[in-house]
Design a protein around this nucleic acid. Structure first.
Length: 211
DNA sequence: GACCAGGTCCTTG
DNA sequence: CAAGGACATGGT
């Protein structure tokens, strides 16, 4: 990675942090965040919220209840998030992984972040972004999340690196602290929703501020 | 009706 | 490795 990429990303982070200030992002207990991390794949958050409400009504908003639930029940509750059959399967796989490898969510608390991440990536349907979302927002670890908005945004200011390299750059630039990571990702998504659609990238404070 | 949303997996070139 | 399709509902 070139040094100018780091420097420019550092400026980008500061700019949107100043722009948005402190914002709440992804509340919920560990199980709810883990479930939400799968449900939000390629899906608007509002739809995820209604699915989480549906799951709660059925008593299915925990990994151990999902572990033993009928998959049809899960599908019914999460249909509004789209891809509901694959996602129900993914939730089952995650629940099985957590139960069998850690004996439940609580068993993850004392294990190192790298080990947890490696384990999560073995689960069918959990890739880098979902794993990091679970680690950062569910388990309060310092593992930075790179999503589509992050990639578009940095490309927009002329930083060419792909997701894998970007994770290293962001983690090198940010203060290594869970709260910092949570806020930085929150800012990026907020900014991305506002300015970085697939087609448009105008009215962009990044460009106009010469980042 | 077309297009897209806080991805991931599988198959091809 | 990069690129393209599948997975699916709901909102603009």
């Amino acid at each position: 990675m070139s040094e100018s990429s780091s420097v420019r990303i550092e400026r980008l982070i500061r700019l949107i942090a100043d722009h948005y200030g402190e914002i709440p992002w992804w509340p919920g207990d560990t199980d709810e965040v883990m479930i939400g991390a799968i449900l939000t794949q390629q899906t608007r958050w509002e739809n995820v919220e209604s699915a989480l409400t549906n799951l709660k009504k059925k008593g299915l908003c925990s990994l151990d209840s999902i572990f033993s639930a009928d998959i049809r029940e899960i599908e019914d509750a999460i249909r509004c998030t789209g891809f509901y059959r694959v996602k129900a399967r993914r939730l089952k796989s995650l629940a099985t992984h957590v139960m069998e490898m850690h004996g439940g969510t609580g068993g993850m608390a004392d294990k190192p972040t790298g080990q947890l991440r490696h384990g999560l990536l073995q689960v069918q349907g959990i890739g880098d972004e979902t794993a990091d979302s679970i680690l950062c927002y569910g388990l309060l670890r310092t593992s930075f999340i790179i999503d589509a908005y992050t990639e578009r945004m940095v490309h927009c200011i002329g930083v060419p690196e792909r997701r894998g390299a970007l994770k290293s750059i962001f983690e090198g630039v940010l203060h290594n602290d869970n709260q910092t990571y949570r806020q930085a990702h929150a800012h990026i998504v907020e900014y991305g929703k506002e300015f970085c659609g697939k087609k448009r990238c105008s009215e962009c404070i990044l460009v106009s501020s010469n980042v």
